[in-house]
């Protein structure tokens, strides 16, 4: 594992910790998209089915379990916690799942490296991850007073994706047979989706202003 990959994973982990901390400490999930969290849960479930079939490393197994458990914890809080669920912006979080899930499913059925259930679901999770942040970005755009921690959460998630691109470049240069076109293209699309957010995040940080995204 190279330094970019490790930094990417740690940033991903940190993003989730920031979100857990924010919701738990403030007892509020204001500005957090339940749709994005549920899409991530679907991504992790489909991708990590290999927990049962394919042991890669202890590191890999533990990280997968952490990602699954933390995402399901957030969903549980947002849906069922008696204090937190009241703070969920239900009316603003209106992105439709089917607009993301169906195209990704069709694409995964058409474009995959092997037509088996496991492989199609794995590929589906790659495509879906690329766009799963969209409901969150739309919600942020509609939120007037974006919580610092919510902004940091999205910034860390975007940074994790950018670090993964550096990881692929490193692997491409150092591992002779390392090629993953579907993963690379999805990952680049995913990172591009964050560019606009990054621009406003860095601008607000430089000017010492509160983050707000123009509608």
């Amino acid at each position: 594992m190279n330094i970019f990959r490790l930094a990417g994973d740690m940033t991903h982990l940190l993003s989730i910790l920031v979100l857990l901390l924010k919701i738990n400490a403030t007892r509020s999930c204001r500005g957090v998209s339940l749709k994005t969290q549920e899409l991530y849960a679907l991504v992790f479930v489909c991708r990590y089915l290999d927990l049962f079939t394919n042991f890669i490393s202890m590191y890999n197994t533990i990280m997968k379990i952490i990602f699954l458990a933390s995402t399901f914890t957030i969903i549980y809080w947002m849906r069922f916690h008696k204090v937190i669920r009241v703070t969920y912006d239900r009316e603003q979080d209106t992105f439709r799942y089917q607009f993301l899930v169906l195209p990704c499913l069709v694409l995964a059925l058409l474009l995959n490296s092997e037509f088996t259930v496991m492989e199609v679901l794995w590929t589906f999770s790659i495509y879906l991850e690329a766009v799963a942040i969209l409901p969150q970005l739309v919600l942020l755009q509609r939120t007037n007073n974006i919580d610092n921690l919510t902004g940091n959460y999205v910034f860390l998630l975007g940074s994790y994706r950018a670090l993964y691109i550096l990881n692929w470049i490193y692997r491409f240069l150092t591992e002779p047979n390392y090629r993953q076109y579907l993963v690379w293209i999805s990952g680049i699309v995913q990172t591009i989706i964050y560019i606009d957010f990054f621009y406003y995040y860095i601008k607000s940080w430089k000017n010492n202003e509160k983050l707000s995204l123009p509608a």
Binding site: D50, N54, I56, N60, M63, N167, N177, Y178, Q180, V183
Partner: peptide, 10 residues
């Protein structure tokens, strides 16, 4: 072997 290597990323 190749399969594990291909899917070692999270």
């Amino acid at each position: 072997e190749a399969e594990a290597e291909r899917k070692d990323e999270l």
